[in-house]
Simulated scan of single mutants.
Amino acid sequence: MGALEAKLIQSFSFIAILTNILLAYLIISRSRKEMGNYRYLILAFTLVGLHFTLLNLILVPFVDIYKHAFVFYPVGELREWPNLMQYAFSYWHANYGSVAFILVLQFAYRYGSLVNQKLLRYFCLPKIGYVLGLGLLNASIWFMVFFLSRYHLEDQKEYLRDRVMEVSGFPVDGLLMVGNLYVVINDRGEEVYYLPAVILGFLPVALLISALILMVYFTYKIQRALNASAMSVRTKKNAARTFCRACYTSLLPSRP
């Protein structure tokens, strides 16, 4: 990654920060009371997005996929503080997982509002505590997976030495790297799968896939409810198009 790409990431992150601040202000000051608890979901999504883009601005994360490795490392000015960056990068990933979790909650709320209103009990006190607990567990798993991944990558930096120098120009010595490296090099110089790394790498993937499945499921149930309703065909099509667009947008990769 060159200096130009790093500056672009920082520029887009700065724009995203301003946009999220404006959106949070509009939600707090202009949202209607009829939105109920849904506005708090939107506000939570906005605040998590604000954290995420702020960390993007500070870390300038670079993602690299190479053979059996899927790693992240900072290319910003703070890359020389690896111990601090380990916590910051892990928190960055926890925010990413929280974005997916809140998206699922948004789809669940829509499903509860339109199809099964019993589900809305979990968005009010005291049962909202269970939902918040699940969200904290989800974020903690993301945090710990990437926090612990550093130690395996530290032991296997030779695997990525030439690659990192080629794509970023940084020496791997002293460079913080987190992510997934599924193999180790044995005494005979062979690549063999490393079970702890495979398990750690599977956890966030499983959480993401579960989130996507739930969003698709809620969208499907809403679609069925719309088809069975007494609304006009045109209204049904417009509503279905809106929900499908929301689902598709949620499946897109997160951008700074």
Rank of each mutant, 00 (worst) to 15 (best):
G97A: 04
A88Y: 13
V145A: 02
E34T: 14
A69D: 08
L47Q: 04
Y111W: 00
E166I: 13
Y25M: 03
N20D: 10
Y193T: 09
L132D: 06
I21R: 07
Q156S: 15
F45H: 09
P171N: 12
N138K: 00
I222E: 00
L136V: 15
T19F: 15
L207W: 12
F52I: 06
M165H: 05
A24K: 10
W81Q: 07
A239W: 01
M35E: 03
Y182D: 03
L203I: 10
S149T: 11
K33Y: 03
L47D: 02
G49T: 09
E154H: 09
I58E: 02
G97T: 05
V60W: 02
A230T: 09
N238I: 09
S90Q: 06
V75R: 01
S149A: 05
P82R: 01
I9L: 06
L208Y: 12
V233N: 11
V71P: 05
K221D: 03
G36H: 00
G76W: 12
A228C: 06
L134C: 01
M165R: 12
V198R: 07
R30S: 13
C247E: 06
N180Q: 11
L203F: 09
I185H: 04
V104I: 14
S13V: 03
V178N: 07
M231E: 11
A139Q: 01
M1V: 13
K33M: 12
T235M: 08
R121M: 08
L8V: 09
E166F: 02
A108S: 11
V216P: 02
E190M: 11
L226K: 02
L4N: 08
Y193H: 01
L59W: 13
L119I: 05
V131W: 10
N180F: 12
P61A: 02
L134D: 00
W81T: 01
E5W: 13
Y96R: 00
L203M: 10
F12D: 01
L8W: 15
Y220I: 13
H68K: 10
R224I: 12
I15E: 03
T242Q: 07
G135F: 06
L78W: 14
L132K: 06
P196H: 05
N56W: 15
A246N: 12
L22A: 13
W92G: 03
R161W: 08
R188D: 10
L8C: 03
K157C: 00
A230L: 10
I185N: 04
V99R: 04
L57C: 15
W142N: 00
S229I: 06
P126W: 00
F72A: 06
L26Y: 05
N138C: 11
T46P: 05
V192A: 07
V172G: 06
